Structures are given as structure tokens and as C-alpha cells.
Simulated assay, not measured.
Amino acid sequence: MSETIDTLDFRRDFPHLDRCIYLNTAATGLAAPGTGEAAARMYGELQSRGYDAQPLWMAERRRVLGLLARLLNVEADWIDFASSSTDALTRALQALPLKAGERVVVPDDDFPSVKAALEDLKSRGITVARVPIADEAQRTEALIDALPGASLLAVSHVHWETGTRVDLARLSAACRARGTLLAVDGVHAVGAIPVDASLADVYVTSFFKWTLAGFGLGLGVVRPALRERLEPRQRGYANLAPSRLLAHSHANYPGIFVLGAALDYLEKLGHARIENRVAKLQAELSARLIADGFAVATPPEAAAGIVALKVPDPEGLARSLDERGIRTSPRGAMLRLSPHFYNSSDDLAACCAALVTLAGQDA
């Protein structure tokens, strides 16, 4: 199989690309072909057979768990389904065997859901320390420096605003050397870069971004050594005590069917080929913008699909681009652009040309 992808081969699978330049996958990816039909298949079975179709649901669940285990480099029984990455992270953090007086750390600028999931720990007498990040290129180092005395580090694999990817292997080694648990939100990573979720004690994600499978389904990966110590606070028929499982009720089976179709599509293209193309597009876009005089916040050696621009008015600039048919997202002090494998170099050139024109108008 070729190591490269020709976008012309499959742009027809994403008709929205005929109507706009879509550089907003880190917000929501375009749904993979076949996903709507997969959901309809699940509901069609419910309509025609009701509970008699349960063996089909369970077989698809097992199949999709196998696809996910291969994608994330873990065993299928490490995975609990949830409704979102936030749901999976909250369940896991609530269940951690942490005691009053212990200390957990999180980047001060991490995604609001990651920080909010830690707030419940304060009611248990646990200290939550927020680590300031002064330099994007030193994000991993700043977190390692904050580890002494910490029982837990919670962090996004890829930063939601700047697009900076932490060095997960280094964080994992540093945490294990100190006996610190590592919880990682991978929602901006999975599908864009290779992910080894086994490096974390807890790794969560959902599937509406780079994996093109829409909303309503997430997962949490828990290493077996930690699983045996969990104390789930959300209980239901699916995890009655003394179970250590975090999933407490039905999974979103229509979502699982949709995810299966999306993963089948992505596997056919080849995850490595997709990841290589995302990296190529990110590097090309970043280089074009730097050459045009823009301030790119994303460190090139720690990029993961996202290009973040430091601009005076991200929201206004995103609106102006939107009027020109170019989809991006304002995120904090940044304008975030996120090309996926279905984008072309022409898309990037058109976006950069529009940005140069708008910058000239504002000068």
C-alpha cells in the first residue's frame, strides 16, 4: 500500500468540502461515510427484532473493542465505554484511591473539563495544584518539574488551544519513577497521531474529532494494576460492588455501530498513512503562515495536527474567514486551524491567502 494519500481519491466522500474549506476538525470532524447507515442498521434491528437482536449488538461491541484496542495499543478488557471523554475522565478520577492530604497537579491552562473533573477531589481534602506553562516548547518539562510529591498528574495529550503535544513517553517514565498516577485526555490526539494509551494509568477519549464518528460515545482505558485499586462512585447494574468497572449501565450501541463504521473506513485508508498526512499538512500550513509573517504558537517538534495562531482578535478573524467560506475556531487567545487527511494543499494556500488579505485590511 502506498505511504501517501491522494485526497482526490476520497474528497467525494465528504461533500461539505465542495462548499467550504474545512480546517476545523479539532472542533468536529466530518462524519465518515457509512456512519449514518450504521446507526440506521442498529435502529432497524431494534424495529424489526427488538431484544432478539441483542447478539448482534454484543458482537459489534466486541468487534469495535478489538479495533480500539489495536488503535490504542491496549487490551480490549482495559476499556470502559462512556458517553464522552469528560464522562470517562470524571468517573475515573472519582474512583481513584486518593486520600486527604495528597496532591494532584494539572496544567493551569488545560481544557476546562480536565480541571473541572479534579474539583471534586478538593471535597476529599486533596490539594489540586495548577502548574503555569510559561513556554509551549517546555510544556512537558514544566509538568515533570511539578511531579515531586504529587500523587496524580492529569493532562491533555494535545493542548486544546495551542495544539502542543506533550511527550507522553517522558511523562509516563517520570510519573512511574515517582509513583505518580498519570491520567490523560486524548480527545485531540486519537486519530491525528499515533497513540500508546498503555503509557498512562488512565487514558480517555471520544470520537467526534479526528476519528469522524460523531457524538455520544467515549471511552476510558484503565491499566490493570490501577483497576484493582479503583473504588467506583457511580454504580449500576453493570458494575455492582465489588466490580471495579467504571461503566455502570448500557453502552451507546448505536454510537458503537457508528464508531465501527468510521474505524473500518479509517483502517481501510490506513491509520499510519492518515497520521503521516496530518503531520505533513500541519507542517505545510505552519510553514506557510510563518513565511507570511504570522506568529504560530504550536511548537513544530510537538505538533499534532493543530496550528494555533497568536492574533489580536481570534473571534473576529474566525468570523471574517467564515464569511469567505473558511472554517476555523477561535480558542482563547488563538485562532486554531486543524487540517485533516481530507484537506489539500490548495485548501491551505487559500486559507493563508485570505489571512494575508485580512491582515492587510487591519494594518
Rank of each mutant, 00 (worst) to 15 (best):
G50W: 09
A92I: 10
G44M: 03
A53N: 02
V190L: 13
D185M: 04
A359E: 12
D9T: 12
A88D: 04
V222K: 04
Y342G: 01
D292G: 12
G125F: 11
G125H: 09
P339F: 11
R273F: 03
G191D: 04
A174M: 02
A349Y: 03
P148F: 02
D80G: 05
A359I: 00
P242I: 06
N73S: 15
S320A: 15
A177E: 14
G316Q: 11
G220T: 09
L118D: 06
A59E: 15
L152F: 07
G101C: 09
Y22I: 01
Q94L: 15
A238V: 00
L71E: 14
I274C: 03
F10T: 03
A142W: 08
A32G: 06
R273C: 02
L68W: 06
A251C: 08
R41A: 15
E301D: 15
L68K: 04
A169H: 09
N343P: 01
D322Y: 13
R170L: 13
L212G: 01
M334L: 11
A247Q: 14
G50K: 09
G191E: 07
T205H: 05
T298K: 05
R70C: 03
L56C: 02
A150V: 01
D9P: 00
V190G: 02
T357W: 08
L219E: 02
R277L: 14
A350C: 11
E60A: 09
A349F: 04
A353C: 05
A197F: 06
L269A: 13
P242S: 10
D167W: 06
P194T: 02
R91S: 09
L72G: 03
S338Q: 04
A137K: 14
G293H: 08
L212N: 10
A225N: 07
V258N: 03
A116Q: 13
P33F: 07
T205Y: 03
L65E: 14
R223M: 05
W160Q: 10
D201L: 02
R327A: 15
D362I: 09
R170E: 12
G360I: 00
V114E: 01
A241T: 10
C351A: 15
A146M: 08
A354Y: 11
F215D: 13
P33H: 10
D145I: 00
V158H: 06
A146K: 04
A189D: 02
E60P: 00
F294T: 12
V204T: 15
I126L: 09
A262M: 07
R244G: 03
A283S: 15
G360E: 14
R324M: 13
A183R: 08
A353W: 00
G179T: 00
A137V: 11
L358E: 14
R70N: 11
L212C: 14
C20L: 14
D135L: 05
A262H: 05
A129H: 12
H157R: 13
V278W: 05
W78N: 06
T25A: 15
P194G: 09
S83A: 14
V114C: 11
G305C: 08
A88L: 07
C175G: 02
G305H: 08
S151V: 00
H248V: 01
R327Y: 11
V105W: 07
D167P: 00
G255S: 08
I306Y: 04
A353H: 10
L65D: 09
G305Q: 07
